Simulated scan of single mutants.
Amino acid sequence: MVTGTNSKKKLLDSKRKLIAKYDPKSPISEQYRTIRTNILYSSVDEEIRSLMVTSSGPGEGKSTTTGNLAVVFAQQGKTVLLIDADLRKPTVHYTFKLTNTTGLTSVLTNQIDIKEAVNKTDEENLFVLPSGPIPPNPSELLGSKAMHNFMEQALEEFDLIIFDTPPVLAVTDAQILGNLCQGSILVVSSGKTEKDALIKTKELLTSTNGKLLGVVLNNKKIDKKGSYYYYGTN
C-alpha cells in the first residue's frame, strides 16, 4: 500500500516538474516557449547548440527550468540531449524516472559509450543522460580532455545539448561548463535570491568567458493559480 502511494507521489511530482510535457497549454508552459524563442534569437550570427542552466544557490528551480526547456525544444522538432552535469547532487534521473547506475561520469571514464548511456524518453526527440555514479573529482572531470571530446561527439549526434549544472556560488563546476557552452541561463527565485549573490554569480560566469544569455525569474506570483516565469536578456 505504501509502495503504491509512493509511486503515485513520484508520478505527480514528475508531472508537476515537467509541466511543459504534461500540461502544454498552461500559461507556465507558454512562458517556457517564450524563453525558448528568446534563446533562439539571442544570437543572430550562430545557431545556439549548447546551453547550460544554473543558479546562484540551491532550491531556486534550475533543474525544473532545465527539464522544461529541454521539453519545449524537443517539441519544436530538435533532437535534444539533456545532461545532468550536477555530479554532486544529481536530480534529473528522478524527474525522468530513470536509474543512475550509468551516465555522464561513466562515459567520461570510458566505461560505456555515449550511445549506450543515453536514455530515450517518451517525449519525442528528447534524450537524457543522467550524471552517473558520483565521482571524487567532479570539477577535474568536467574540465578534462575527455569532456571536450564528449562535447564534440554529442554535437554530432544531437541538435541541442542542455546541461543542468550545480549552483555557481557552491562550486566551480558551472564556470567550467560555461566555457564549453555557447550560452548560459541563470535561474533566479523571486524573493529568495539575494542581490549580492546574483551580482557575484554574474561576475563569476562572465569572468571565465562564459556568455550569459539571460535570466529566468522563477516563482514570481501573479495570482492564486500559479507562478509566473520571466526571461530577461543580459
Rank of each mutant, 00 (worst) to 15 (best):
T3H: 08
K9C: 00
K9L: 14
K9N: 03
L11I: 05
L11D: 05
K15G: 00
R16V: 02
K17W: 01
I19L: 11
I19A: 03
A20M: 04
K25V: 10
R33A: 03
T34Q: 04
I35D: 00
T37D: 06
N38M: 02
I39R: 07
L40F: 00
S42Y: 03
S43M: 12
E46L: 10
R49A: 01
M52H: 10
V53T: 08
V53G: 04
T54A: 11
T54P: 05
S56Q: 11
G57D: 13
P58K: 13
G59Y: 05
E60T: 11
S63C: 10
S63Y: 12
T66Q: 09
T66F: 12
G67D: 12
V72K: 04
V72Y: 08
Q76H: 13
Q76K: 15
T79G: 00
L82T: 10
K89V: 02
K89S: 06
K89G: 02
P90F: 07
T91D: 08
Y94R: 14
F96D: 07
N100H: 05
S106G: 01
N110Y: 11
D113H: 13
D113V: 08
I114M: 15
K115R: 14
A117V: 10
V118D: 04
V118T: 07
T121H: 10
T121W: 10
D122W: 00
E124Y: 00
N125Q: 06
F127H: 15
L129I: 04
P130M: 09
S131L: 04
G132E: 03
P135E: 07
N137C: 12
E140Y: 06
K145F: 01
K145A: 05
A146I: 02
H148W: 02
N149E: 15
L155G: 08
E157H: 06
E157L: 15
F158R: 03
F158N: 06
I161S: 11
F163C: 09
D164Y: 07
D164E: 06
T165C: 11
T165A: 03
T165V: 05
P166I: 02
V168E: 02
L169I: 07
V171M: 09
D173P: 08
D173K: 05
Q175G: 15
I176F: 10
G178A: 13
N179R: 15
C181E: 00
V188I: 15
S189W: 00
S189T: 12
T193Q: 09
K195Q: 11
D196C: 00
T201Q: 03
L204Q: 14
T206M: 10
T206E: 15
S207K: 15
G210I: 08
L213S: 06
G214C: 05
V216N: 06
L217F: 12
N219E: 10
I222W: 05
I222Y: 11
D223S: 15
D223I: 14
K225Q: 09
Y230E: 14
